[in-house]
Design a protein around this nucleic acid. Structure first.
Length: 583
RNA sequence: GGUCCCGUAGCUCAGUCGGAUAGAGCGCUAGCCUCCGAAGCUAGAGGUCACAGGUUCGAAUCCUGUCGGGACCGCCA
């Protein structure tokens, strides 16, 4: 097969070429063809691939869809690579591929190997994916895991689509919570010096992970900090404590296989004058004013009083109400810091930004997007992906967690119990905006109830056949370049067709920012492979290995190598191992 | 009061930049190991895609409204 790109792309180009030819011949007026696509028909009996071209063009061309479909079909029949080209109501053109064309895609899979499925739709464009961004005040817990995995896999996916991706973490190291952290660490410091600190006060972080920070402070400063006033020791203690928390968080993330490259500090953004820049810029655009906000509804805010303060006209960009940028005392709000941070990203060259947030931040989407639009004159684009809650179950029973009681499940505990692979896969086996149930009992189960094992098992099974093939002396020293002429059974071709969809799936998942599609695709590919395998049990002529027939065996070994390649490629996008055996 | 998300088979969910007869797993019923991994496979039953309107040649998908479930609302972070 000639041409570049994967099967679907090539077919789409052929359809477009046919339309162009019809235009030239004066049979169709020139029209917008951006909506023309090729896809796998949902129902059986409509060929391998279909195009909606005639339906899309019917209106602009002023002709009945069936008539246009006939014209396209006539044009496409000139291409020899189709078994059948059929027109179907209301105006689809259905293509049935020749087996030669199907197996040619297998050759392509084997030729490109670990790169099969990559595309260049991102064309080197810079994109920033910010995820996790947990407050640096303690270890990561279950609530952070979903967003962490989602962001990481989305970044992988964008890389597969040819984007220049930056994986980023925003450190909230400037708010009150890091002062509380510093005070909590200071208490542990006194403890490390031998003082009896009694119970940890309500307004401090009780976690024992701070003991190590206290000891480190004692080693570094001796008793010298005890004599100082809080205003003197706090900055230094805060710095040490934040650095220590961040180190712990990075270690937590590594447990999940996640390594981010850029850690943006809120404090540094502020020190560079980020807030002043925001105020100046918005003011210049006439988007600031002094005003009084309505009191919040639905929730009591005990200390709310109507006050005049600096507001951002975010309603001009789709927000529900204008937002405060300065507190009553004139200090900047968290929101204005966030605006400064996003503008910092934009100035670092990221006009395309993706934030991965937890469900509890859903209400902040509009204002942040409004701010990016306003600050960048619409040149910056921010997509915000909200990951819904994870409900932790153990054998169908909800695991109750409480931060106060310290019964929160940490990332580390989760990975230790469920394993990295199962954790990552299951976090993606649901759309990001739907609530996810994560059942410990299910994710470690080794059966087809458990998608991660089902997919990994398919890979292990494939490898098992390849090992057996290696031990067949009659297969050695055969020419590797094959035309796969022996692969003609419909079930074999089905597997290759499923494989051929992989690049399409990767591209679409990246474009939609929906990593879960990869997980579902892999489940389907594993399924058609298991089906083919079992078919060999029923029908011995379909068994993969047959020492009486080397030609067929070699072709089938190629098929299996292709399946294992794609399973492995897809799993690598998910950051999940592709095991060679699972016994 | 308002914003966002969800509502598809008994259960858990895919499918949604509009496309053909709406799919999978679990559970249920009936089968398949002398045979490359049965951790698997085959067949069957099971649906007015929450409801009501609208747009369209065509709606699970888009728009409006209603009902049900969840997250949330700040000068906090």
């Amino acid at each position: 097969m000639s041409g570049s790109g994967h099967l679907f792309e090539r077919l789409r180009h052929k359809v477009l070429a046919a339309l162009e030819a019809l235009c030239k011949a004066g049979e169709l007026p020139p029209t917008d063809v951006s909506g023309v696509g090729v896809d796998v028909p949902k129902a059986q009996g409509h060929g391998d691939v279909a195009t909606n071209a005639a339906l899309m063009l019917a209106k602009p061309a002023g002709k009945p869809p069936l008539e246009i479909a006939e014209m396209i079909a006539r044009e496409m029949r000139k291409d020899g690579s189709f078994e059948k080209v059929e027109v179907a109501r209301p105006g689809f053109v259905n293509f049935t591929l020749k087996p030669e064309s199907v197996v040619a895609e297998l050759a392509e899979v084997l030729r490109t190997g670990g790169n099969y499925g990559k595309n260049t739709s991102g064309s080197g464009k810079k994109v920033n994916v910010e995820y996790v961004s947990a407050n640096p005040t303690g270890p990561l817990h279950i609530g952070h895991v979903r967003g962490a995995v989602f962001g990481d896999v989305l970044a992988n996916l964008l890389e597969w689509s040819g984007f220049d991706v930056c994986r980023e973490y925003y450190i909230n190291d400037a708010g009150l919570q890091v002062d509380v952290l510093a005070r909590s660490a200071f208490l542990r410091y006194r403890e490390a010096l031998g003082e009896d600190i009694r119970a940890i006060p309500e307004d401090m972080y009780p976690g024992e992970y701070l003991c190590a920070v206290g000891k480190a402070l004692a080693q570094e400063h001796g008793k010298s900090l005890l004599e100082k006033d809080e205003s003197e020791w706090l900055p230094a203690v805060r710095e040490t404590a934040v650095a220590s928390m961040l180190k712990m968080i990075k270690e937590d993330l590594r447990e999940l296989g996640i390594v981010q490259e850029y850690f943006a500090s809120e404090r540094e953004v502020l020190e560079r004058g980020g807030v002043e820049q925001v105020l100046k810029r918005l003011n210049k655009k006439g988007l600031l004013y002094e005003g009084v906000l309505e009191p919040p509804k639905g929730k009591e805010v005990s200390d709310w009083k109507p006050r005049e303060q600096t507001l951002f006209r975010s309603t001009a960009f789709g927000d529900d109400t204008d937002r405060a940028l300065k507190k009553a005392d004139g200090s900047p709000t968290y929101f204005v810091n966030d605006i400064a941070y996003h503008f910092d990203k934009f100035e670092r060259g990221f006009s395309e930004m993706i934030d991965v947030w937890g469900a509890d931040h859903g209400g902040y989407i509009k204002r942040q997007q409004a701010a990016v639009k306003a600050m960048t004159d619409g040149k910056g684009y921010l997509d915000i992906k909200v990951c819904q809650l994870v409900r932790l179950l153990r054998g169908g029973e909800v695991v109750k967690m409480s931060k106060r009681a310290g019964t929160f499940v940490t990332l580390r505990e989760l990975v230790k119990e469920a394993g990295r692979d199962a954790t990552r896969f299951m976090m993606l086996y649901r759309k990001n905006d739907a609530v996810l149930d994560f059942d410990f009992a299910k994710v470690v189960e080794q059966s087809k109830d458990n998608p991660v094992f089902y997919v990994q098992y398919a890979h292990a099974r494939a490898c098992s056949v390849l090992r057996a093939a290696d031990e067949m002396p009659e297969l050695h020293n055969k020419d590797a370049a094959r035309d796969f002429a022996k692969l003609r059974h419909s079930k074999e071709l089905d597997v290759i067709k499923q494989m051929a969809a992989f690049p399409h799936v990767v591209e679409n998942a990246a474009r939609a920012h929906e990593p879960h599609r990869i997980a579902f695709y892999l489940y389907e590919l594993a399924s058609v492979f298991h089906i083919l395998w079992s078919e060999g049990k029923r029908n011995p002529s379909l068994r993969f290995l047959n020492s009486e027939d080397c030609e067929t065996t070699l072709d089938r070994v190629g098929l299996i190598r292709g399946v294992s390649q794609i399973l492995s490629n897809g799993l690598s996008i998910l950051g999940v191992e592709a095991p060679e055996e699972m016994r």
